[in-house]
Amino acid sequence: MLTDEQIAALLAEPKRVVTDPLSSLRRKGAHLEATAKVAADSNADFRVVVRVSTVNPHNFSVILMHRPRGGVWLRLRRYNGRSHFHTNRLEGNRFYAYHIHTATERYAATGGADLESYAEATDRYADYRGAYRCLLRDCGFGGPGPDDGQLSLFPEEDE
């Protein structure tokens, strides 16, 4: 089981996206999807997964995943759109907003809960491109991601 210290270290570890997932989105049913390989100095296994609904533009998920050696893929950080309610079971709060799931030790230790069950509402992004840029900033990718030239309708945190 990962501790909070281990999770923080994995998030902070320097990483580089090998291929830009936003330029390789492919349609699968009612959503677009892409998976990007990630190179890390430690050679640890990471990948970035992107899912965007073709029905509801507010329904998307941009995920940093990590696979411990011999283990299964874990979701360390998930940047969700605003298409469903979320309840934090331990804290008891509920919201309907763009929100960021984060892996935590306390939820990993909670029976029936996923590692990344804890989430916080956010106003740092309003679409999947903004969510992807937030992931790059927050998770050791060293700054903003590829600039696709499009401006977000809503200002992001640092703008």
């Binding site: 609904s53 329904n59 298409s83 469903h84 309610f85």
Partner: peptide
């Protein structure tokens, strides 16, 4: 993971429909 099931109620061609708008398979 604490996310509620994504359920939308909407009118399509004059009839009410419950839909997940693709969220379950996504």
């Amino acid at each position: 993971d604490g996310d509620h099931l994504g359920v939308v109620l909407k009118q399509v061609a004059g009839r009410w429909q419950l839909t997940d708008e693709g969220s379950t398979l996504m």
